[in-house]
Amino acid sequence: MDNILKLLKQNARLSNKEIASMTGLTEEAVAAKIKEYESSGVIKGYSAILDDDLADKDNVTCFIAVKVTPTAEFGFDAIAKKILSYKEVESLTLMSGAFDLAVTISGTNYKEIALFVAQRLSTIEGVVSTSTHFFLKRYKDKGFMINADDKDERSFVSP
């Protein structure tokens, strides 16, 4: 992966100037490169990594394993398109293995999510089964420690 992308994945708030100093490129070159990544769709957006429990007490997230039977006229993509149109859906991925689609959904309470699954998700044509798993505690997300102790064991000063 390009160094600019690596740095932005670590910290999307780095300025072009900082990225330039770290990669040895000029500020203009960095700006141009990022623009290019944005317009070609490599970079989809920028968001903060939150401890959702601290940011919003009324937040429930769950992961739903969805099995589907695609048909000739209604394949994986068509089913996926249907699911991703719901704004509650945070992420949606086609998987290999025991189920087909991995869906994560956030809501304000368990009931809301249960209703979403029952009324919106399971009723989609082609969806055979769903199994819903609630997030209880997140330890690490996108490489960042959420609820884990990442203490520096080194002493403050050493030769």
Partner: peptide
């Protein structure tokens, strides 16, 4: 060692941000 003194001060303080170590992170 001239480092010892800083080690002692830093160690007695809360919330120190260190750029003082000589070993990999």
């Amino acid at each position: 060692s001239g480092i010892r003194k800083f080690f002692d001060i830093a160690n007695s303080m809360e919330g120190v941000i260190s750029l003082g170590v000589g070993e990999p992170d």
